[in-house]
C-alpha cells in the first residue's frame, strides 16, 4: 500500500486499528466510526492524534459535532463507482471547516485522484499493485476547471472575467 500526501509520496505515520486492537500509547491512530460512536469515553485517555475512518454510507453529519476531535478523516471508496465520498469530502471542508488530513482509502484509482483532490482530499492510500508514481502524474491531469470545488482553482467563468484572463 502506498501513500500520496500533499502531492508527493509519503510514509504513513498513522496506524489503522481494527475494532479489536487495544489502544496503546499515544501514537497517531485511526479508528472506525463505530468504535468512536460506541466507545468515545474510552478514547478520551488517548492523548495522541486521532483519526476516524468513515464508510461510504456514513455521511459527515454523523460526526458534525466532533469534527475538532479529529486530526485525520479517512473516507472509504468501496468501489470505483461509489462516489458518495466526493460529496462528503466537500461538505467536510466547505461546511464543517475540517482542516486536518482528509484521506481517500479503499478502491482508489489514479483516474479519480484529480477529482478527489479537487473535493478536498489531501492524501490518498493506493491499494497494493497500483503504481504510485503513475498516480502522482494524474494529480495534474487538467490545468483548467469549469466548476468551483473545495480547492482554490478558479473556475473558468471567473478566470474569464479577470483582467489578463484567457
Amino acid at each position: 500500500m502506498a501513500l500520496i500526501k500533499d502531492g508527493s509520496l509519503a510514509e504513513d505515520s498513522w496506524r489503522t486499528l481494527s475494532d479489536e486492537d487495544a489502544v496503546i500509547g499515544n501514537g497517531p491512530i485511526i479508528i472506525s466510526f463505530e468504535r468512536w460512536r460506541d466507545g468515545r469515553d474510552a478514547l478520551k485517555r488517548h492523548n495522541g492524534p486521532l483519526g476516524i475512518r468513515m464508510k461510504s454510507d456514513q455521511p459527515p453529519a454523523l460526526i458534525a459535532d466532533d469534527i475538532d476531535r479529529f486530526h485525520l478523516i479517512a473516507l472509504e471508496f468501496p468501489t470505483l463507482a461509489d462516489g458518495r465520498a466526493f460529496s462528503y469530502a466537500r461538505l467536510l471542508r466547505e461546511r464543517h471547516g475540517f482542516k486536518g488530513e482528509l484521506r481517500a482509502v479503499g478502491d482508489v484509482y489514479k483516474d479519480q485522484l484529480y477529482f478527489m483532490q479537487r473535493c478536498g482530499f489531501s492524501s490518498f492510500e493506493l491499494p497494493a499493485g497500483r503504481d504510485p508514481n503513475d498516480a502522482l502524474g494524474a494529480l495534474k491531469s487538467f490545468s483548467v476547471v469549469y466548476s468551483p470545488a473545495a480547492d482554490d482553482a478558479t473556475p473558468a467563468y471567473q478566470q474569464r472575467g479577470k483582467p489578463g484572463g484567457k
Binding site: D82, G83, F86, S87, F115, V145, Y146
Partner: peptide, 16 residues
C-alpha cells in the same frame, strides 16, 4: 451551455 460547462468533469458529480 453554462450548465454544460459546469457539469463537464465536475469533480463531485462524476460518479453518481
Amino acid at each position: 451551455e453554462i450548465v454544460r460547462q459546469f457539469l463537464t468533469l465536475h469533480p463531485e458529480f462524476s460518479w453518481l
